[in-house]
Design a binder for these strands. Structure first.
Lengths: 211, 211, 211, 211
DNA sequence: CAATAAACGAGACGGTACGTCGAGTCTTCCT
DNA sequence: AGGAAGACTCGACGTACCGTCTCGTTTATTG
């Protein structure tokens, strides 16, 4: 993300206080983000708050989306993978826990970034890799462990099943205007996810005669 | 598309036969939308194209999101509810058909509007009621008919199940960067939706002892 | 002052007695003029106040300057020509009296109209004929009577002398920022006007041999 | 006109050598002023012509009047005080010379500014101090020198006499629609100014009995 | 340890879109 | 028939933010 930094592979390199300055800027960004939201955040505001010049911001980041994304990523403390012993418990813990979908701030920011995602290819790539990727991987781990425990079949189409839970929750939030609650998450897990993973039999069978 | 416009049968210029002028503006909006996309669409461009003044635009619409939303809604020709005789067939037809999730243009605009949705309460209400609402109702009808046919249980939690399919597809598109295909939609239906609706038994079973 | 009101029977509203409606509009114009001044007066405001449509305004007047000018003219009650028996007394009375140069409102509006005068030929003609003309004629009368009394010579260049007093006063107001007072007017009369009219002898005399 | 600009000695574009950019903008303003006049001059036009952004204009100047005034002031080359040896000659030279009242451009601009003067207090102050002031001082000098030569009395009320000539000329132009000519100026000098300055005797005498 | 060249803060700049406002025209409806 | 009502086009306004740029000024190696 942060270009021209830590790799130290090119010119004599002799930047500033190394990545420390960068962190201050990212902090300022996160603060403003929390205060006014993505859209009302301006590069000028970040520059002022961080006592940096806009030139510095643009030297390091492509623009507002990249900066904000980086700022969010910098906040990522590794949220430990929960281990409750059951798929259901793990999903609940992961989804409702810190950094999960009930975390209003993160989710609000997420909404703000969707616009940027759908129009900036490069930004989208970074977003998918560094922001969505790790979260998705955690979710996948929960399913893989359940497979290893024998709780669910090994031949499930995890590519489809793993993102289903966050998908349904976020869809309700963004498109239906229905903010996530633990109760809702429970309903989705019990009525969609668990039936789907426990489903045994012909996965794609009946073309004509359903009954 | 442009309904009662430019038939060119009479005097020089003469707008205003009630909402006719409005439709011309919405048409211009849709054209520009198709040409340059939501972000590069400017109010000035719409005004110029429609030979309207910006004052007129702002007299009728709150701003760009409202105008664009209205423009899209004006394009809504009633897509007939498919009736294939099975839930699976109906879902496939509805989701892949015209105005469904494989319609790239609509979906791209959708992404652009999410920002506005999560920021403007009033806009969100209109969006939910007039844009999402009708689509959701169609989806619900498909499930209700399946219930009436006895194909699926009557005690399903449709509030959760109905939006699940679009949720998963759109989530893949917006957050995972995975554009919808018919093949994907089929997988989701067969591996998530149908198992969930056919799932019989304890809907929320193992509270404590999963193992 | 306010015409169209004197009948006192107004309530039921009943326009269109030819020039009566016009007077109501001019009254509204004068009111607004007094309240907010020329620049902040809008045609919409006049239309609203007079319960007229803008179309009506533009049907009768060319635009804002013409309307305002007409409104001012409508206020013109014939200010009687003073007759104090001396040129000096007449000038003082005329210049300081009602409708004279110490009337702040009229003078302020005058300033606003100068722009229009120097830009709109047609407007300028009306302005000169109907606004300036009568005032100038009154001033001229004062001089003519003085000539008839034998107080001043008959061969004076009145075209130059008559406008000199208002010229000097208005110049001080508009360009020097020095508002008119009776004291100032007195000084100008005594030190410029009277010396000039009493000047007898070589009109263009001295230094090198002008004649 | 454009003072220290485009010496073209170095790289492509590179403004900002202190007030140099400002002068370019003022030059553009003067050009447009000469072409279309004050009222038809728009900030956008100035911005475009000067290849500046409107933000830059508004960063430095309050608005159109301030910009235009500054532009005019920037054009002020010191017009040397004429010295013909007589008051009459000096007045003629000064009034008819460069920057005098027969200079159509300057006078046109003057007319345009009167409106602004009579409604913007701050603008009026600057206008009086920086535009009118220097010109008035030159006129006063002519009279003072005449006094020093003994050509005219030392106890004249110069505050009234000095502005009288321009007052009368401008009044004829703006309010009577009579453009200045050298012939007119001569008449005013000979029939008003000179009689007034040579007037000997009671300056403000006869209160009641003129006859 | 001074010279030097990168990176920096500050913030002006060109550009573009915004949303508002007033002028003057035009159409519809009402009386 | 004619006027009130007010929507309409046009175009200027003044503001905001973006991303670039040019200034001095640090700052940390390098000579």
């Amino acid at each position: 993300m942060s270009p021209a930094s830590k790799d130290g592979s090119d010119q004599p390199v002799r930047p500033r206080v190394e990545g420390e300055r960068e962190l201050e800027i990212l902090d300022a960004t996160v603060q403003i983000l929390a205060e006014v939201g993505y859209d009302l955040l301006t590069m000028d505001a970040v520059a002022t708050r961080a006592k940096a010049s806009k030139a510095t911001l643009y030297r390091r980041w492509n623009g507002k989306p990249a900066l904000v994304l980086d700022a969010i990523l910098s906040q990522k403390e590794r949220h430990d993978l929960p281990d409750t012993g059951s798929l259901r418990g793990d999903l609940l813990a992961l989804t409702c826990g810190m950094g999960g979908l009930t975390d209003g701030t993160q989710v609000a920011i997420l909404g703000s970034l969707i616009t940027a995602v759908s129009r900036d290819r490069e930004f989208a790539d970074i977003f998918h890799r560094d922001f969505i990727g790790p979260k998705a991987e955690q979710n996948r781990q929960v399913f893989v462990r359940a497979q290893e425990r024998g709780e669910i079949p090994r031949d499930l189409d995890l590519d489809v099943l793993v993102p289903a839970l966050p998908a349904i929750i976020l869809h309700r939030l963004f498109l239906l205007g229905d903010p996530p609650t633990e109760e809702l998450i429970t309903r989705v897990i019990d009525q969609v996810i668990l039936p789907a993973v426990h489903h045994r039999g012909t996965p794609t069978p009946e073309p004509e005669g359903t009954r």
